[in-house]
Design a protein around this nucleic acid. Sequence first.
RNA 1: CGGGGCGUAGCUCAGUUUGGCUAGAGCGCUUGGUUUGGGACCAAGAGGUCGGUGGUUCGAAUCCACUCGCCCCGACCA
Length: 609
Amino acid sequence: MRYSQMLIPTVKEVPAEAEITSHKLMIRAGLIRKVASGTYTYLPLGWRTLKKIINIVREEMDRAGAQEIIVPCLQPLDLWYQTGRSVDYGETMFRLIDRHGRGNVLGPTAEEVFTFHAAAELNSYKQLPVNLYQITPKFRDEFRPRFGVLRSREFIMKDAYSFDATPESLHKSYMAMYDAYCRVFKRCGLEYVIVEAESGEMGGTGSHQFTIPCESGEDTIVYTADSSYAANLEKAAVDPLPKEVVPVEIPPAQDVYTPNVGSIEAVCAFLKTKPQDMIKTLVLSTPNIAVEIEQGFVKELAKHDGRRTIPSQDWAGKYVLAVLRGDHELNMEKLMGVWGGWHLDLADPDTIERMTNAKVGFAGPVGVDLACWDLIVIDHAVAAMAVGVTGANKTDYHKKNVVPGRDFPLKGNKVKVADIRLAQPGDTHNGVPVLFKKGIEVGQVFKLGTKYSKKLGANFKDENGGLQPCLMGCYGIGINRIMASAIELYNDENGIIWPIAIAPFEAIVTPVNQDDADVVRVSQEIYGKLMEAGVEVLLDDRDLRGGIKFKDADLIGIPIRITVGKKSVVEGNVEVKLRAEPQSQKVPIGEAPQKVAELINSLKERLKV
RNA sequence: CGGGGCGUAGCUCAGUUUGGCUAGAGCGCUUGGUUUGGGACCAAGAGGUCGGUGGUUCGAAUCCACUCGCCCCGACCA
C-alpha cells in the first residue's frame, strides 16, 4: 500500500481522555477513534491488526476442531429468561423492545443462543462432541467504560461452546481449547500467564484465565514465588488462619453504647481496638435493582402485548448474611460459590435496616433469627478468632467480648463456615506466602457442565437410549484486548513496537527525499519486489520531510523499516532497521528485498508454536 | 447511582473569578517561498451556533435554572 492513499491520521498531541499507554498510542497512531463513551471505530491500520488477530484465532480454533458459525447479536429476551441470566446480567445487558412489542437484548455473550441450537440439532451421542464458535461484536452496558478498548461497551469477542457426552470427553474438549489458547497468545507475541479462575458449578480445575501481566490491567493475579500456585483474585484460596488462643476466660458478651459510630474505622477509634479484632457483618440480597429493571421492562412489554413471557420471580426476596473479620474484604465470587443460588448484591440501606432492626453500621451475627435468613456464611478467619467486637443489631450499639461458636453458631442448617474473603498481603497458600500483580484478562476457558443444557433442553440420547443433558464448555477471547495488551507490552517513547504477527504491515519503505529521482526509483523497486515476495509493505510516498516519516513509522510501529536516502543510494546501499532495535544496517540495494524477507522470517520464527 | 471535573477552531488549551470593543494561542489545514536524514522557517489565508434550551441584563463564552455529552474517583458498608 501507498501511505499517501491510506487514512492514517497520526497525531502529536495526547488526547486528554486517554490515560493508559495503549489507549494513547492507539489514538496517536491513528488506529482508533472514539464515537461515544465505550464505542470505537477501527481505522484502516487498527482494523488490519484486528484482522490479523482474528485470523490467528480462527486458524487455531479450526485447527482444534471447532467450527465457525455466526449467531445473531440481536437475541430474544425469552432465551435469557429461560436461563435466568437476564437477572444475573441486570443492567449490564442492553435491552430493547421492537415495534411488535417483543423483548430483545444485544448479546453480551451467547451461551443461550448456542445452547438453543444444540437443543434443536444435537440429538444423539453419535453427533458429539461438537465445538462451535464465532467471532462477533458483543455488547455490555458497562457501569463505567474505560481504558479505551480494554473496557468498552461494544467489543469483539471470540466465543466457543463445546457439547460433550461424558466428563472425559468434556475434559478433552476443554484441554483442546486450552492448548489452542496457548498457541494463539504465543503466535500473537504476547507473554501470558495462565491462572486458575472461578469455575462455576464443576469445581476443581474447571476454569483457567489467560492473563497478560502489566500495570494497566484491571485484574489481579495472586501467585506464589515458587510458582506452585497462580489464580485470579476471585478464585485465590488462602490457608485458614490458626485458631486464636487466649489464656483467660472471655467474659460474657456485652452491649456497648457507640452513638453514630458505624464504620470499622470509627468503631476502632471509639473502642480503641483494631480492625482485625472486629467482626463485620454484611447483608446481601437478591438484586433489587435487577428486579426493578425486570419488572419495569416487563411492564413495558405488557403494554405492547400482555401475552409475552413474564420472567420467573423466584429469585426475589432471598437474604444472605456474610460474616468477615474487620480487616478482610468479601469475595463475592467465593460467596456465590458457597451460596450457589441467585445472584446476590449488597443490600440497600432500607433492606439492611429491615433485616437487622438497626441502622446501617450496627449489624452483627449474634442472636439473628435464622428463620429470616436463607444462609449465614462465616469466613474461616472469623471462626478462628478468640474474641471480637461486632454490631449489636441495635442502632448505636455494638457488642464486645463476642466469642464465635459461643455467642453465635458456627454450624447448623443455614450456617456455613467457608473461605469467602479476598486474599491479601500476608496470606499464604499451602504455607507459601502469596504475591500480587496486575494483569489484563485476554481469555478464559470454563467447564460449564449442564447449567445451560438443562435449562434449555439441550439433551441427547445416549448409547442406552437414555436422555441426557449435554456437558458444555465455553471459551472466550477478547480480540481487542489482545491488541491493547500487545501495545501495553511493546512500546517506547516513540510509539508502538508491534510483534510482527499482528503488525498492520511487516515493513515500510521510507524514501527520505521525495524529490530525488534515484531515491524514488530505488524505493519503488524495493517496494515492488517486496510486494512480489508477498511481504506486507507500506511505501511512504508522501511528499514530506524525512523526519516526519521516521516519526510516523516509529509511532505506528512497523517492525522493519527500509530507509532510502540520497547519500546511501549513491553508494548503492539502503538502510534496514528493526523497529525494536536502535541501530540500522547498510544493505546493497539489490540485496535489500532478500534481507528484509530474512528478517521477517527470523521475527516470525520467534512466534512459532 | 454518589462525588468531582470538563464542554470555546479538526486537535491541545487560554479567556469565565470581577458580564463590556471584531473571541484568542499553539498544533493541524490551504496558498506562495525558503528548506529537506528524526515531527523546519517566513509570509498570507481559511476555519467558531463558545454543548443545547430558557432566563437575568442596555449588553452573556462569562451570571442563574434546566438539560445533553464526555472524563476521573467511588460505590467495601457493618
